[in-house]
Design a protein around this nucleic acid. Structure first.
Length: 873
RNA sequence: GCCCAGUUGGCGCAGUGGUAGCGCGUUCCCUUGACAUGGGAAAGGUCACAGGUUCAAAUCCUGUACUGGGCACCA
């Protein structure tokens, strides 16, 4: 016998062991059919998983299990990402706490520590994925920096190099002063910050008025190599071609014309600092201006800045502004909000810096990716992300792939004096030194769908699993990762690495704010699992995972899901309690039933069950787990438990016989079907229940995944039964409503008489249902209105319930008047429609007859209520 | 500035043309042998605003406001 409530922890622990022992998630190439394959978005080895990972991986697990249950060979590849800067930052924090200087420690020792950290972290992360129930093929674990992946990275680099798609050059890049490295354009975030616009006077060389420029960054003026004005700006026309002097250092720079400069902004004169601003860099390129570095990689001013050399950017700005003011150069200082660039890993201010870096040319690589999107070989769900994805590819810029950190794939290029650099994994010989930089972590991530299957080797696995089916990830890495995988996969193999991308939202806190450590609103998925069980967390997430939408995560939702899990548990418990100890040979099967012997409730629940399964399958096929979850929830709770089980009680308490056997078969088969269908969303509890139920269902699979979805033996859809059952339910509800309003508890049995067009049917075929569910002791046909009775009006039936001594007539009249008013207003609405000649002439016939039927029903109800009220007064 | 979402009962969200749904919360009643992690009942919404299309609009179109996001940015 099952326990009264479901206790997830021991069940989860034992099932995890059983699954693993059975190698249940193992996939190997087989000959027939294309497999369904997902490669995990490898979590960075920066710590533990957060609730966003729980969402991402539960989605994948649901899709993978769904496909397995559909009978498809399915493979989900696990792994972690070394995580470049992010992971190095974690280690640097640790070192700082231990008061160890990274540079004093040295590159080798640092990397050794990183390796040890990585080992621990991978163990933690993969353990957490296991606990989440992820059906990953654990024998395929990969890491973006292991030997196989290192070969892939080298091969990719070499191939791109040979095709001339990789180059090294001095360019203006996004430099994070804190991380001490260059970043690519998409690794930079923007934020509006308050600052000041300084109006600075630059004197004319050789004397004269000169001009005034406006800048938010006065400290960069030592790097100025021109002042630009708009060619159509009459205010500064006279200055063009002349030279002005930079304050303090008196270096003369030309005044040039460039249409980039806007009339309306500031003074209309722009100081041009090619080495520290992207737009200035472009102006510099157009006019052949030199680029002078006023700020170094350490964020401090260089020798160009004269006496300011060595000051940090921030200090220099204040100091320069103060000195300008003191010496009369500062003509005006006004508050000004402007967007600033921020490092996506440490949030510090980005400095545009001229430096020597490695780049991958992107335009050529983007073309096949665009084509794949346009001709449908690659699809994005939901599709509203396709446009931004496309726009990004169209406007793509070269990708800066070198990083001045230690943790990563070292750039495989070797130098020796004046000789041509050599691309090689190993040292080409004595005297050669390797490029000190490492590759952007996204470079190896971009190869992930290729590299996890042993690429560049065309292994058996690679041939079978590549291209993969679906990629599931958040929109925040659509460009950073998804687009690059498409480009790389197409460049190297001519095939999209995955045919579909499912883009989900991020998990926010319950008020919709982004989770962050500093806000203290981070939800720990492990804590949720401990408290409510893994299935509850999974179901809560899936129930809210509407395509592409963020989730406002409230712990209450997990509680609700936990209750649902328990409901499922207890409905099984009830069914098992009503089954013999020993299952009959072959189990309870529907095909053994004679259809003629089925009752209304049977036909109804079988019909509803079938459509629920079909609906949920369609939703999962379309990557819409939330809709599937809702279909299950409503069916199981509001139909199967609330009505069918309640009705089944009547027969199960009765004598043994075909009726009882039929009820058992239906309960067992419907529950089994639902368990399997729910398995992708909540694998643990369904597995556990299945093991108890399967002998009765006549099944022998050790695990749900091995048996596949439950196939109903024939078509049970039955709209007539659904319609009739809805009338019965409405009739029952009307009596319950009267009872509740008059405070007559359900266990106080009452008598009733019934009249109306549906009354005869109720008396003849549904009497047992109505008396059982509405708590009646008797139900008789109407002859005369009993004195002192309340009235319950439903579609087609009116019940009179004698309640001498209980009923308050004033209250009863009030209640009925309210119902009447509602009925009247319904009629007004439907009349307006039915009487509209345009509606009658233009609407489809089905609509017209439905509307008329609605009017009839509403009028009948109105008349009945009116009559009853008259009798009461 | 351009583009994309969103705006539905107290809160969080479904719902893409035919008389508004769900979960949580609220109110009342009920410890009846699956489940109080439960059961029954009820209250609560002119579906942001303004136009338009249509017999019919939460749903389609246009515009406005607000919120969020993406991209590009004025130094």
């Amino acid at each position: 016998m099952l326990e009264k409530t479901y206790d997830p922890k021991p069940v989860e622990e034992s099932l995890l062991r059983l699954w693993e022992k059975a190698r249940l998630f193992r996939s190997v190439p087989r000959h027939e059919g294309r497999p369904f394959t997902i490669v995990i978005p490898p979590p960075n080895v920066t710590g533990a998983l957060h609730v966003g990972h729980a969402l991402d991986n539960t989605l994948q697990d649901a899709f993978i299990r769904h496909q397995r249950l559909l009978g498809r060979e399915s493979c989900w590849v696990p792994g972690c990402d070394h995580g470049g800067i992010a992971t190095q930052n974690v280690m640097e924090k640790q070192l700082k706490a231990e008061k160890i200087d990274r540079h004093a420690l040295g590159r080798e020792a640092f990397l050794e520590r990183m390796q040890a950290w990585t080992r621990d972290c991978k163990k933690t992360i993969l353990g957490q994925l296991r606990r989440l129930g992820c059906s990953l093929d654990w024998e395929r674990e990969a890491f973006t920096m292991d030997d196989v992946r290192a070969k892939a990275v080298f091969h990719a680099f070499k191939t791109l190099w040979e095709k001339g798609l990789i180059y090294r050059g001095e360019r203006l890049v996004n430099w994070c002063v804190r991380c001490g490295t260059a970043l690519s354009d998409i690794e930079v975030e923007r934020e509006e910050r308050k600052g000041a616009l300084h109006h600075i006077h630059y004197a004319l060389e050789g004397g004269g008025e000169g001009l005034v420029v406006a800048t938010t960054r006065p400290e960069t003026m030592f790097g100025d190599t021109a002042v630009a004005v708009n060619p159509k700006d009459p205010r500064w026309k006279h200055m063009v071609g002349k030279k002005v002097l930079i304050p303090f250092i008196d270096r003369a720079i030309p005044v040039i014309e460039d249409s980039y400069v806007e009339f309306g902004f500031g003074t209309g004169a722009l100081k041009v600092t090619p080495a520290h601003d992207q737009n200035d860099w472009e102006i510099g390129q157009r006019h052949g201006l030199p680029a002078l570095k006023a700020i170094g990689p350490d964020g401090r001013l260089t020798a160009e800045a004269g006496s300011y050399a060595g000051l940090s950017r921030e200090k220099a700005r204040d100091q320069v502004a103060a000195d300008l003011e003191a010496q009369g150069f500062l003509r005006k200082k006004e508050d000004h909000k402007s967007p600033v660039a921020i490092c996506y890993r440490c949030n510090s201010l980005i400095e545009p810096l001229l430096s020597l870096q490695w780049f991958v040319k992107q335009t050529e690589l983007a073309k096949p990716a665009l084509k794949a999107l346009d001709d449908g070989r690659f699809k994005i769900h939901p599709e509203n992300w396709a446009k931004p994805y496309r726009d990004w590819l169209v406007n793509i810029k070269d990708w800066c792939v070198s990083r001045q950190i230690w943790w990563g794939h070292r750039i495989p290029v070797w130098y020796k004096g004046e000789e041509k650099p050599v691309v090689s994994l190993e040292s080409p010989g004595a005297g050669w030194t390797q490029d000190p930089d490492v590759l952007d972590t996204w470079f190896s991530s971009a190869l992930w769908p290729l590299s996890v299957f042993g690429w560049p080797e065309h292994t058996k696995d690679f041939e079978y699993y590549y291209p993969t089916s679906t990629l599931v990830t958040g929109y925040e890495i659509l460009y950073l990762w998804v687009a690059r995988m498409q480009m790389m996969g197409l460049a190297f193999e001519g095939k999209v690495p995955f045919a579909e991308a499912v883009i989900h939202g991020i998990v926010r806190d319950k008020s919709g704010k982004k989770m962050s450590k500093s806000l203290g609103n981070v939800v720990d998925p492990l804590a949720m699992m401990d408290k409510y069980g893994t299935d509850a967390l999974r179901f809560a997430l899936m129930a809210q995972a509407h395509p592409g939408k963020d989730i406002a995560f409230d712990e209450q939702s997990v509680l609700g899901a936990r209750n649902f899990v328990n409901k499922l548990w207890n409905s099984t418990r009830f069914v098992l309690m009503n089954l013999p100890e020993k299952a009959p040979a072959g189990g309870y099967k529907l095909d053994k039933l004679s259809r003629g012997s089925l009752e209304l409730a049977d036909r109804w629940i079988l019909s509803r069950s079938q459509s629920t399964l079909a609906e949920a399958k369609a939703h999962l096929d379309a990557y819409e787990p939330a809709a599937a979850a809702e279909a299950f929830y409503t069916f199981l709770w509001d139909e199967f438990c609330a009505w069918y089980i309640e009705l089944a009680k009547g027969r199960l308490l009765g004598p043994e016989g075909p009726q009882k056997e039929a009820t058992r078969a239906i309960l067992v088969q419907i529950l089994t079907g639902m368990l399997k269908a729910l398995h992708p969303l909540m694998p643990f509890v369904t597995e556990e229940i299945y093991s108890a139920l399967k002998p009765y269902a006549g099944e022998s699979s050790a695990f749900v995944l091995q048996g596949g979805y439950h196939a109903l033996d024939s078509d049970w859809s039955n709209p007539e039964a659904e319609k009739e059952m809805s009338l019965v339910m409405a009739a029952v509800s009307s009596i319950r409503s009267v009872r509740a309003q008059l405070r007559v508890p359900l266990d106080m049995k009452i008598a009733a008489v019934v009249e109306g067009p549906f009354a005869e049917k109720v008396l003849k075929t549904h009497r047992a249902y109505v008396t059982l569910l509405a708590g009646l002791e008797s139900l008789e046909p109407f002859t005369a209105r009993p004195p002192q009775s309340a009235t319950a009006v439903a579609e087609g039936v009116t019940f009179f319930i004698p309640l001498a001594g209980i009923i308050d007539f004033a209250k009863e009249r009030e209640r009925l008047s309210k119902e009447l008013a509602k009925a009247e207003s319904d009629i007004v609405k439907i009349e307006a429609k039915v009487k509209n000649p345009d509606f009658l002439s233009r609407a489809p016939q089905a609509q017209i007859s439905e509307a008329k039927a609605q009017r009839e029903a509403a009028c009948a109800r109105r008349d009945q209520l009116k009559k009853t009220l008259e009798e009461l007064s």
